[in-house]
């Protein structure tokens, strides 16, 4: 019964979808803000990667919100799973091979994450991806060593300081008499590491923050007792 209703509902939704998207042109150029961004990004922001420029500069407010969403998810997960940590139980340890390799790979993965967020304005990637990679690298250690612990104190500090950096960078723009999150640094030459004004600063802050947050999420979930 439930299935029948669901299928009926989906059939209606699907019908509308198909009707709308059959007329949607695929692969054609569009007028609109996208075109403006493509033509003016390098001039206005100095970033080679237009997507990064949009994410951090033109629509930087979104990114601030996005960081907040992740922050809230980490906080909320902490609140939901509060008081459920600990209790000993027997677990299968990882084999020597996995342990040794994790040790070797852990710094490399973290370095890769750092590379991704430092080069956010030049190559694909940026703060979120870099942070996710760092968190995954820490997870590698969690998986190999049950006793591996991250310091919650340090996580909190990184998280807060990175978040404050982001907000402060925004407020500096406001304090200088322009608008929130406005660039106040020289743009530099495109495709240099030190270019694009505040974009790298924001992405580094985001990278640290997301890395710390996702590590916190994974830690919270892993250390929860069943």
């Amino acid at each position: 019964m439930r299935k029948a209703i669901a299928i009926l509902l989906l059939a209606i939704v699907g019908y509308y979808f198909i009707n709308v998207f059959i007329h949607m042109p695929f692969g054609e150029k569009r007028e609109g803000v996208g075109k403006y961004y493509l033509e003016n990004t390098v001039k206005e922001t100095g970033a080679a990667n237009v997507v990064t420029a949009i994410v951090v500069s033109y629509r930087g407010f979104d990114t601030l919100g996005e960081v907040t969403v992740l922050f809230l998810a980490a906080t909320g997960l902490g609140a939901i799973l509060f008081g459920k940590r600990g209790e000993k139980r027997r677990l299968q340890g990882a084999s020597v091979i996995v342990k040794t390799t994790s040790m070797m790979l852990y710094p490399m993965v973290v370095l890769l994450g750092a590379y991704v967020f430092v080069h956010g304005h030049l190559t694909p990637g940026g703060g979120f991806q870099g942070g996710a990679i760092i968190a995954t690298g820490v997870l590698l250690m969690f998986m190999s060593y049950r006793h591996f612990n991250v310091s919650h104190n340090a996580l909190t500090w990184i998280e807060s300081l990175a978040g404050l950096t982001f907000a402060t960078v925004g407020l500096i723009g406001l304090a200088l008499g322009t608008t929130f999150l406005q660039n106040f640094l020289p743009l530099g030459t495109p495709n240099d590491l030190v270019s694009a004004g505040i974009i790298p600063i924001i992405y580094i802050a985001v990278g640290f923050k997301v890395g710390a947050e996702l590590t916190g999420v994974l830690d919270n979930m892993l250390k929860t007792i069943r």
Binding site: L91, V98, L112, Q129, I133, L140
Partner: peptide, 23 residues
């Protein structure tokens, strides 16, 4: 491709550790 290779490895390792009864 680089990042993809690194991360998919860790994903598979997690699954393997789950099968083992670790994690």
């Amino acid at each position: 491709a680089l990042i993809y290779g690194v991360l998919s490895f860790i994903g598979v390792l997690t699954l393997a550790r789950y099968l083992e009864g670790g994690l």
